[in-house]
Design a protein around this nucleic acid. Structure first.
Lengths: 203, 203
DNA sequence: TCGTGTTTTGACCAAATGGTCAAGGCCACG
DNA sequence: CGTGGCCTTGACCATTTGGTCAAAACACGA
């Protein structure tokens, strides 16, 4: 088995191909619903070849999850304590909505994992995620204390941003079924959410 | 195999037991992740006995989903066109939040199904669900036209209620991991959401 | 071009899993 | 208290699936 840090060109390319195929399949069927054969087919490789690059199905899944955790938190990291409070929070919500548009598979991968109790992510949730959220919650609480935004619970504010934006990726089929064809859910959500958060945050 | 409409006391009881066990297992592991053995163990019955009451694993799942669809929509049905607009919408949000508290398994069952593309619910989404939502959207639009609430898109308002409330059931592990112990997420959400929707709806 | 280390795969395995079936147990009613 | 029909189950089956392995194919520097 090649080391986790790929050395050759082929290894780099194939590991990438596999992870992309796995993201496609895991996000659509969940961990248990995905099979190595499906991932192999999607990647255009043979099943034993997958297992040449990763030791197990679970290893592929774990690799995906940990790679994604970082990307996923970037928008929140970018929340600037020195910026304008309302603008910063609106920008955060907008970035999250853009991620629902541009990376729906990633969003569904997380959703699948968390709905099922996050068996492979507990540590990350209570660790990195909680730390970052607590840190930013402090920033938001300070803004509220200064009267620059309404005095609302920062944790639940963050939850509301997560749920409102990820809904458009995770529940995409439902949103589309209800809206019918010929509408652009995310473009509409952009306007709706801008309005919602402006009203919520106004001091 | 007993008919779908149970006739004897034993049938009624066992079908109930099985559906409850299945709800527990399906909501926690998804359709593919759940096994008949798990459901049988949870129900305290033997695997062949399950299959005496239901023709297949899929039949159990489908029965659960269709039974639940009704319960799930009840709160929205109760939205009264003749009531006070803000009060009606707040009450709807509160009822949905109560369902997240009282029936988290049901919420997760749906979430699992929809995140994975709703392979067994497409029809229900584009049918009953869309019809009901469209009907209530008309009511809300009328309220807005009369200037009794802010002029916001009714479909996205409904989506926002769904996502904000179900988040506390579906992403429960994440919410708890981030909040830490010693807090009551849903009680806090109740206050937060009341405030959020009041501000959003104010004309 | 050759030789070595890397990459790929067909064939295979063991375990898990949805589902079947025939036989036995049990309950209710006459 | 007997019997017909309802309920339960141990044993079994076919398929799916994660994973192994030895051998073949290939890439590439010397």
């Amino acid at each position: 088995m090649p080391s986790a840090r790929p050395r050759t060109r082929i290894q780099t390319k194939n590991r990438e191909t596999i992870l992309d195929a796995a993201l496609e399949v895991f996000s659509q069927h969940g961990f248990r619903g995905a099979t190595l054969d499906m991932i192999a087919a999607e990647a255009g490789l043979s099943k034993p070849n997958l297992l040449y690059y990763f030791p197990s199905k679970e290893a592929i899944h774990v690799t995906l999850l940990s790679q994604l955790m970082n990307t996923w938190l970037d928008p929140l990291r970018a929340l600037d304590p020195d910026g304008d409070p309302v603008a910063e929070i609106l920008a955060y919500a907008r970035r999250k909505l853009e991620m629902s548009r541009d990376f729906p598979r990633e969003s569904r991968l997380f959703a699948n994992e968390i709905v099922q109790g996050a068996p492979r992510m507990q540590a990350a949730l209570a660790g990195d995620l909680k730390n970052l959220v607590d840190e930013k919650a402090k920033v938001i609480r300070a803004w509220a204390a200064e009267g620059r935004i309404a005095d609302i619970d920062p944790h639940h504010l963050i939850f509301s941003i997560w749920s409102l934006t990820q809904h458009y990726a995770d529940f995409d089929v439902q949103v589309r079924a209800v809206l019918g064809t010929g509408r652009d859910p995310i473009a509409e959500a952009d306007l709706f959410l801008d309005r919602l958060f402006r009203r919520l945050l106004a001091p």
